[in-house]
């Protein structure tokens, strides 16, 4: 059986270097080469890998039934595309840049097909149409992977940011604090809890002070989050103290009917710390004749 893309296949074998070069130049002309993000060597490696995978895929596929990129014959190319996409996403290229990056492969191949098949217009149209379909499929696959990879990058950055915004601090041997600032929605409350519980294990902490001095609003939901955190801390075998409860917050909590049960609360972090020290068996003393 004749391969529907036999001329393209031949070109990829004989004209590999010049196609790669022309593809790179088309990318440059389209403004998607991004020399600020990728060195010449990196770009050449990415394009080279794709062209090789493309050649293999075409030679192993029966294209008479249309192109099915999820077939086994395209496994290597899919892996290469995913890898290249991942690299480009990580460095911040946009979805349209990524699509143009792939589609720019068409022009150099079309130009060469026109030269080779000048005498056989039927064949020329056939190969151009087929090759165009293949490249479109690659661009589509890349786009799918692009979205997925970008979601992962965003999720990772969000997690990193969350960790930065809720630092658990060791105040003393076996005493931790987590100063909460801003708003405490369900998502963030869960992160806070997770960070805090992991820190309890890491530091063998026995008392943790959850300081809400910087929390803007304490409504029923926020109060529930705080009490759940305290309950989880207790299940781990440590004690939670909620500190920074201003008179206004105390008033709101009573009005909302929030019952803190057996959870220890303190108006200030200072009062909480004094309680924590007693719990772990330390006391703070005034030193006579202290200087400074």
């Amino acid at each position: 059986m004749k391969n529907a893309l036999q001329t393209v296949l031949a070109l990829l074998g004989e004209d590999y270097d010049s196609i790669l070069q022309a593809w790179l130049e088309t990318q440059k002309a389209e403004g998607v080469r991004r020399p600020d993000l990728f060195s010449d060597r990196e770009s050449r490696r990415q394009l080279g890998d794709i062209l090789r995978g493309l050649g293999e895929g075409i030679s192993r596929s029966d294209l008479s039934e249309g192109i099915a990129l999820d077939a086994d014959s395209w496994t290597d190319l899919r892996a290469t595309l995913d890898e290249v996409t991942q690299e480009r996403v990580e460095r911040g290229v946009s979805p349209s840049e990524m699509a143009t990056f792939i589609l720019a492969m068409k022009q150099p191949v079309f130009a060469r097909l026109r030269e080779r098949l000048a005498a056989d217009p039927t064949r020329l149209i056939e190969e151009i149409t087929q090759f165009s379909r293949v490249v479109d499929a690659l661009a589509m696959h890349t786009n799918e992977h692009f979205i997925e990879a970008r979601d992962q990058v965003i999720e990772r950055q969000r997690a990193e940011m969350m960790e930065l915004s809720t630092p658990v601090v060791q105040l003393w041997d076996r005493v931790l604090t987590i100063p909460l600032i801003g708003t405490l929605d369900s998502m963030r409350a869960q992160e806070v809890m997770e960070n805090l519980l992991n820190a309890i294990v890491e530091h063998s902490a026995e008392v943790v002070i959850v300081d809400i001095t910087g929390v803007r609003v304490v409504d029923t939901q926020v109060a529930q989050h705080l009490l759940r955190t305290a309950a989880a801390v207790r299940l781990m075998g440590a004690e939670a103290i909620i500190s920074g409860i201003s008179p206004k917050i105390a008033q709101t909590m009573v009005e909302l009917g929030v019952d803190v049960g057996e959870v220890t609360t303190r108006p200030t972090i200072r009062a909480a710390l004094a309680h924590a020290f007693r719990r772990v068996g330390f006391s703070i003393e005034k030193v006579e004749n202290a200087r400074g």
Binding site: Q190, M193, E194, L197, N198, I200, V201, S204, E206, R228, A231, A232, V233, R234, L235, M236, G237, A238, E262
Partner: peptide, 30 residues
């Protein structure tokens, strides 16, 4: 009850089971 893992503690709280009748500690020696 000792040695509960963090994810287990969070899940139990969500299930509304806070084992309030049991005492807890980080480890056996605690």
């Amino acid at each position: 009850v000792v040695g509960m893992r963090p994810a287990v503690a969070m899940t139990l709280v969500e299930l509304g089971m806070d084992l309030h009748g049991s005492r807890t500690a980080l480890t056996l020696s605690h």
